[in-house]
Design a protein around this nucleic acid. Structure first.
Length: 260
DNA sequence: ATGACCTGTTTAACAGGA
Protein backbone atom coordinates (compact mmCIF):
# COMPACT_ATOMS: atom_id res chain seq x y z
CA UNK A 1 0.00 0.00 0.00
CA UNK A 2 1.54 3.22 -1.21
CA UNK A 3 0.91 6.42 0.79
CA UNK A 4 2.31 9.76 -0.38
CA UNK A 5 2.52 13.34 0.83
CA UNK A 6 2.93 16.41 -1.37
CA UNK A 7 2.74 20.13 -0.71
CA UNK A 8 1.47 21.17 -4.13
CA UNK A 9 1.53 24.96 -3.54
CA UNK A 10 -1.84 25.72 -5.12
CA UNK A 11 -4.23 23.21 -6.70
CA UNK A 12 -5.23 25.58 -9.50
CA UNK A 13 -1.62 26.03 -10.59
CA UNK A 14 -0.73 22.34 -10.09
CA UNK A 15 -3.73 20.33 -11.31
CA UNK A 16 -2.08 19.14 -14.53
CA UNK A 17 1.15 18.17 -12.75
CA UNK A 18 -0.83 16.46 -10.01
CA UNK A 19 -2.82 14.38 -12.51
CA UNK A 20 0.37 13.40 -14.35
CA UNK A 21 2.03 12.38 -11.09
CA UNK A 22 -1.02 10.37 -9.92
CA UNK A 23 -1.18 8.61 -13.27
CA UNK A 24 2.55 7.82 -13.31
CA UNK A 25 3.08 6.81 -9.67
CA UNK A 26 -0.33 5.44 -8.62
CA UNK A 27 -0.35 6.10 -4.88
CA UNK A 28 -3.19 4.39 -3.00
CA UNK A 29 -3.45 7.45 -0.79
CA UNK A 30 -2.09 10.96 -1.44
CA UNK A 31 -2.05 13.64 1.26
CA UNK A 32 -1.91 17.14 -0.22
CA UNK A 33 -1.04 20.42 1.46
CA UNK A 34 -1.31 24.09 0.53
CA UNK A 35 -4.16 23.58 -1.89
CA UNK A 36 -4.95 27.32 -1.45
CA UNK A 37 -8.56 26.71 -2.39
CA UNK A 38 -11.99 26.57 -0.84
CA UNK A 39 -13.68 23.17 -0.92
CA UNK A 40 -16.11 24.21 -3.68
CA UNK A 41 -13.30 25.14 -6.08
CA UNK A 42 -11.23 21.99 -5.58
CA UNK A 43 -11.29 20.02 -8.88
CA UNK A 44 -12.60 16.82 -7.31
CA UNK A 45 -14.21 15.63 -10.56
CA UNK A 46 -10.90 15.50 -12.43
CA UNK A 47 -9.27 13.54 -9.61
CA UNK A 48 -12.22 11.20 -9.11
CA UNK A 49 -11.95 10.41 -12.83
CA UNK A 50 -8.53 8.91 -12.05
CA UNK A 51 -10.06 6.50 -9.55
CA UNK A 52 -9.75 8.45 -6.31
CA UNK A 53 -12.12 9.41 -3.54
CA UNK A 54 -11.52 13.00 -2.45
CA UNK A 55 -11.66 14.61 0.99
CA UNK A 56 -10.95 18.35 1.24
CA UNK A 57 -10.46 20.76 4.12
CA UNK A 58 -9.96 24.02 2.29
CA UNK A 59 -9.63 27.73 2.96
CA UNK A 60 -9.69 30.81 0.78
CA UNK A 61 -6.29 31.81 -0.63
CA UNK A 62 -4.06 30.14 1.93
CA UNK A 63 -3.31 26.78 3.53
CA UNK A 64 -5.81 23.97 2.87
CA UNK A 65 -5.26 20.21 2.90
CA UNK A 66 -6.77 17.23 1.09
CA UNK A 67 -6.60 13.46 1.03
CA UNK A 68 -7.05 11.39 -2.14
CA UNK A 69 -7.72 7.69 -1.70
CA UNK A 70 -8.40 4.72 -3.95
CA UNK A 71 -10.05 3.13 -0.91
CA UNK A 72 -13.34 4.57 0.25
CA UNK A 73 -13.36 6.72 3.37
CA UNK A 74 -14.90 5.20 6.49
CA UNK A 75 -14.41 8.47 8.34
CA UNK A 76 -13.19 12.00 7.58
CA UNK A 77 -12.23 14.40 10.38
CA UNK A 78 -11.35 18.01 9.39
CA UNK A 79 -9.37 20.30 11.67
CA UNK A 80 -6.85 19.81 14.46
CA UNK A 81 -8.57 19.51 17.85
CA UNK A 82 -7.64 21.71 20.78
CA UNK A 83 -8.52 25.27 19.71
CA UNK A 84 -11.94 26.07 18.29
CA UNK A 85 -10.82 29.65 17.54
CA UNK A 86 -8.17 28.41 15.06
CA UNK A 87 -9.59 29.06 11.57
CA UNK A 88 -6.56 27.95 9.54
CA UNK A 89 -7.17 24.77 7.51
CA UNK A 90 -4.04 22.75 8.23
CA UNK A 91 -5.19 19.30 9.34
CA UNK A 92 -7.36 16.58 7.82
CA UNK A 93 -7.62 13.02 9.06
CA UNK A 94 -9.31 10.07 7.41
CA UNK A 95 -9.80 6.37 7.98
CA UNK A 96 -9.90 3.91 5.10
CA UNK A 97 -10.60 0.20 5.28
CA UNK A 98 -8.42 -2.26 3.44
CA UNK A 99 -8.30 -6.04 3.21
CA UNK A 100 -5.85 -6.07 6.11
CA UNK A 101 -7.74 -3.64 8.33
CA UNK A 102 -8.19 0.06 8.91
CA UNK A 103 -5.51 2.61 8.09
CA UNK A 104 -5.73 6.09 9.61
CA UNK A 105 -4.05 8.88 7.65
CA UNK A 106 -3.51 12.56 8.41
CA UNK A 107 -2.61 15.34 5.97
CA UNK A 108 -0.69 17.99 7.90
CA UNK A 109 0.38 21.52 7.00
CA UNK A 110 2.26 22.66 10.10
CA UNK A 111 2.66 26.46 10.41
CA UNK A 112 5.88 27.99 9.08
CA UNK A 113 6.37 30.23 12.11
CA UNK A 114 8.48 33.00 10.58
CA UNK A 115 9.24 35.66 11.56
CA UNK A 116 10.09 34.31 14.99
CA UNK A 117 9.59 37.65 16.75
CA UNK A 118 5.97 37.83 15.55
CA UNK A 119 2.91 36.00 16.86
CA UNK A 120 3.44 33.42 14.12
CA UNK A 121 6.13 31.57 16.05
CA UNK A 122 4.10 31.07 19.23
CA UNK A 123 1.24 29.96 16.96
CA UNK A 124 3.56 27.34 15.44
CA UNK A 125 4.69 26.05 18.85
CA UNK A 126 1.10 26.02 20.14
CA UNK A 127 -0.01 24.13 17.04
CA UNK A 128 2.76 21.58 17.62
CA UNK A 129 1.62 21.13 21.23
CA UNK A 130 -1.94 20.48 20.00
CA UNK A 131 -0.60 18.05 17.39
CA UNK A 132 1.31 16.17 20.07
CA UNK A 133 -1.78 15.94 22.29
CA UNK A 134 -3.87 14.67 19.39
CA UNK A 135 -1.25 12.11 18.33
CA UNK A 136 -1.14 10.84 21.90
CA UNK A 137 -4.90 10.23 21.69
CA UNK A 138 -4.72 8.57 18.27
CA UNK A 139 -1.88 6.27 19.32
CA UNK A 140 -4.19 4.76 21.94
CA UNK A 141 -6.13 3.14 19.08
CA UNK A 142 -3.07 0.98 18.35
CA UNK A 143 -3.80 1.00 14.62
CA UNK A 144 -1.74 1.75 11.53
CA UNK A 145 -1.53 5.56 11.57
CA UNK A 146 0.40 7.60 9.01
CA UNK A 147 0.84 11.31 9.84
CA UNK A 148 1.99 12.76 6.53
CA UNK A 149 2.69 16.30 5.55
CA UNK A 150 4.70 19.47 5.43
CA UNK A 151 5.92 19.79 9.02
CA UNK A 152 7.99 22.94 8.35
CA UNK A 153 10.67 21.36 10.54
CA UNK A 154 14.25 20.61 9.46
CA UNK A 155 14.95 17.80 11.94
CA UNK A 156 18.78 17.84 11.99
CA UNK A 157 21.81 19.48 10.40
CA UNK A 158 21.96 16.52 8.02
CA UNK A 159 18.63 17.62 6.55
CA UNK A 160 19.80 20.99 5.23
CA UNK A 161 22.36 22.11 2.66
CA UNK A 162 23.66 25.04 4.69
CA UNK A 163 22.87 24.75 8.43
CA UNK A 164 24.45 28.11 9.29
CA UNK A 165 22.07 29.91 6.94
CA UNK A 166 19.12 28.52 8.93
CA UNK A 167 20.33 29.45 12.43
CA UNK A 168 17.48 31.17 14.22
CA UNK A 169 14.89 30.33 11.55
CA UNK A 170 11.50 29.04 12.73
CA UNK A 171 12.14 25.77 10.84
CA UNK A 172 15.43 25.16 12.65
CA UNK A 173 15.35 26.80 16.07
CA UNK A 174 16.14 24.71 19.17
CA UNK A 175 12.54 25.15 20.40
CA UNK A 176 11.28 23.79 17.07
CA UNK A 177 13.65 20.83 17.25
CA UNK A 178 12.59 20.10 20.83
CA UNK A 179 8.89 20.23 19.94
CA UNK A 180 9.40 17.94 16.94
CA UNK A 181 11.48 15.48 18.99
CA UNK A 182 8.84 15.35 21.69
CA UNK A 183 6.24 14.47 19.04
CA UNK A 184 8.41 11.73 17.54
CA UNK A 185 9.22 10.49 21.05
CA UNK A 186 5.57 9.63 21.61
CA UNK A 187 6.65 6.50 19.74
CA UNK A 188 6.42 7.58 16.12
CA UNK A 189 8.88 6.64 13.39
CA UNK A 190 10.27 9.10 10.83
CA UNK A 191 9.77 6.82 7.84
CA UNK A 192 12.48 8.33 5.67
CA UNK A 193 15.11 8.14 8.40
CA UNK A 194 14.10 4.59 9.26
CA UNK A 195 15.01 3.26 5.82
CA UNK A 196 17.56 5.81 4.57
CA UNK A 197 20.64 6.79 6.59
CA UNK A 198 21.96 9.16 3.94
CA UNK A 199 22.03 12.86 4.76
CA UNK A 200 21.23 15.71 2.36
CA UNK A 201 18.10 14.20 0.85
CA UNK A 202 15.65 17.03 0.44
CA UNK A 203 11.93 17.56 -0.21
CA UNK A 204 11.94 21.35 -0.74
CA UNK A 205 14.02 23.72 -2.84
CA UNK A 206 13.27 27.46 -2.82
CA UNK A 207 12.19 29.03 -6.08
CA UNK A 208 14.83 31.72 -5.50
CA UNK A 209 18.61 31.92 -5.90
CA UNK A 210 18.92 28.82 -8.08
CA UNK A 211 18.28 26.56 -5.08
CA UNK A 212 17.17 23.59 -7.19
CA UNK A 213 20.07 23.83 -9.61
CA UNK A 214 22.55 23.96 -6.71
CA UNK A 215 20.70 21.26 -4.70
CA UNK A 216 20.36 23.79 -1.93
CA UNK A 217 17.38 22.17 -0.24
CA UNK A 218 15.83 21.13 3.06
CA UNK A 219 13.97 18.02 4.26
CA UNK A 220 10.74 19.26 5.83
CA UNK A 221 8.08 16.89 4.47
CA UNK A 222 7.76 13.85 6.69
CA UNK A 223 5.71 10.72 7.23
CA UNK A 224 5.53 9.79 10.91
CA UNK A 225 4.32 6.27 11.60
CA UNK A 226 2.62 4.60 14.53
CA UNK A 227 4.35 1.38 15.69
CA UNK A 228 1.73 -0.68 13.85
CA UNK A 229 2.46 1.18 10.59
CA UNK A 230 6.23 1.14 11.17
CA UNK A 231 6.12 -2.66 11.43
CA UNK A 232 4.81 -2.71 7.86
CA UNK A 233 7.25 -0.15 6.40
CA UNK A 234 9.01 -1.45 3.30
CA UNK A 235 10.42 1.68 1.69
CA UNK A 236 10.30 5.47 1.77
CA UNK A 237 11.30 7.50 -1.26
CA UNK A 238 11.32 11.06 -2.55
CA UNK A 239 9.98 11.84 -6.05
CA UNK A 240 12.65 14.47 -6.83
CA UNK A 241 11.81 14.36 -10.54
CA UNK A 242 8.71 16.54 -10.20
CA UNK A 243 10.92 19.51 -9.16
CA UNK A 244 12.37 19.57 -12.66
CA UNK A 245 8.95 19.79 -14.34
CA UNK A 246 7.45 22.89 -15.90
CA UNK A 247 5.64 24.97 -13.28
CA UNK A 248 6.81 22.80 -10.36
CA UNK A 249 5.76 23.06 -6.75
CA UNK A 250 8.69 24.04 -4.55
CA UNK A 251 8.05 20.78 -2.64
CA UNK A 252 8.24 17.27 -4.10
CA UNK A 253 6.26 14.15 -3.13
CA UNK A 254 7.56 11.77 -0.48
CA UNK A 255 5.99 8.33 -0.13
CA UNK A 256 6.06 5.05 1.72
CA UNK A 257 5.16 1.51 0.82
CA UNK A 258 3.46 -0.44 3.61
CA UNK A 259 3.34 -4.20 3.52
CA UNK A 260 -0.24 -5.20 2.72
C1' DA B 1 27.70 37.63 -12.97
C1' DT B 2 28.92 35.78 -8.11
C1' DG B 3 22.08 36.02 -9.84
C1' DA B 4 17.37 36.71 -11.25
C1' DC B 5 10.67 33.42 -7.23
C1' DC B 6 5.90 31.80 -7.01
C1' DT B 7 0.75 31.77 -5.88
C1' DG B 8 -3.54 33.84 -4.83
C1' DT B 9 -6.44 37.79 -4.91
C1' DT B 10 -10.47 43.21 -4.36
C1' DT B 11 -6.22 42.00 -11.46
C1' DA B 12 -2.44 46.01 -8.92
C1' DA B 13 0.31 45.69 -5.87
C1' DC B 14 0.41 42.97 -1.87
C1' DA B 15 0.50 39.07 1.57
C1' DG B 16 2.49 34.82 2.58
C1' DG B 17 5.61 31.36 1.84
C1' DA B 18 10.42 28.82 3.63
Amino acid sequence: MKIASWNINGIKARIEGLKTWLDQTQPDIACLQEIKSIDENFPADEIEALGYNVAVHGQKSFNGVAILSKHKFDDVIPGLPGDKSDEQARYLEAVVSTKTGAVRVASIYLPNGNPVDSDKYPYKLGWMARLKAHFADVLKYEESFVAAGDYNVIPTEGDVHDPEAWEGDALYRPETHAAFRSIVNLGLTDAFRAVNPRDHCYTFWDYQRGAWQKDNGIRIDHLLLSPQAADRLQTCQIDRFTRGWEKPSDHVPIWIELEV
